[in-house]
Design a protein around this nucleic acid. Structure first.
Lengths: 142, 142
DNA sequence: AAAGCGGTTCAAGCCGACTTGAAGTCAAAT
DNA sequence: ATTTGACTTCAAGTCGGCTTGAACCGCTTT
């Protein structure tokens, strides 16, 4: 059972040791134990770190991710439902935005954000209160 | 030609007036002008704000979004290419993560993050250095 | 014995994106 | 005449997520 010192654990996940200390302090990922006062990390902890990394790259706050990770049975599943819904929304928005940017890129106007009628029209709808989510969804019906 | 005071402009976009002042100060969105010392916003500025809103919700830093918006012709298109690529990556990651969470949700284990073999296996691959992008891409080939 | 390495704690600093508070201006409504 | 409301500036505060710096410890290598 390999138990890695902080530096090695951090290296594996592409993080700085200070980050792991910070996570420890915040109670997000506590080391498996201490050996001579030094933090040592095991598989479980590395997995927790990996999980947090994924969550974080998707814009989920560390706090929320940590809670999902610690929630038992039912609560865990509920937390996941929320995150899945959030991801579905994110994906829809991203696809809408992508189409939008692709259009902008292909538009012959010199300054599409000012001249392109499609782009301007879309922005104007936002200005008039239509949430981007909706515009994105229209253009990209799930 | 309607020129809205800061409060009205902010309301239209669901922002706080202080946010618009902040954007002005940072040079991201300057009001169309001043009337009696007060900021007034026109269509162009509202569109800029809408654009920044979209960008921001996708995790693009304000600075970057503002630069894309101001870049002329070729540079604009280059900036867009980058953002489109970034979005493609984001979408791929999000879809991978979604599958991952869906699996976790459907896993009968009490604590999937600890017990579910698929989940644990995935996390372990990350621990061993495989970037999540790659794992996500495998599971969700574009 | 001294230097280097990798850890330790604690406090402070930094960045982005704002928000909040204090003090003032101005026009319209009571 | 005064109060209300929306604005102005400027300085400072907040929050998340770290990083940095100072001082120290214990082991190994030179």
């Amino acid at each position: 059972m390999e138990r890695l010192p902080i530096g090695e654990a951090a290296r594996r996940l592409g993080l700085a040791p200070s980050t792991l200390r910070y996570y420890d302090e915040r109670g997000l990922v506590r080391p498996a134990g201490r050996v001579g006062g030094r933090r040592v990390y095991g598989r479980q902890e590395l997995r927790r770190l990996a999980f947090l990394q994924i969550a974080q790259r998707l814009g989920i706050p560390l706090q929320a991710a940590g809670e999902v990770l610690d929630a038992p049975g039912e609560r865990w599943r509920k937390g996941l439902e929320e995150q899945i819904a959030a991801l579905d929304e994110l994906i829809a928005r991203a696809r809408g935005a992508r189409d939008f940017l692709v259009h902008a890129r292909d538009c012959p106007a010199e300054h599409p954000a000012r001249e392109c009628p499609v782009m301007v029209g879309l922005l104007d709808r936002m200005v008039d209160g239509t949430p981007f989510e909706q515009i994105a969804a229209e253009h990209h019906p799930s």
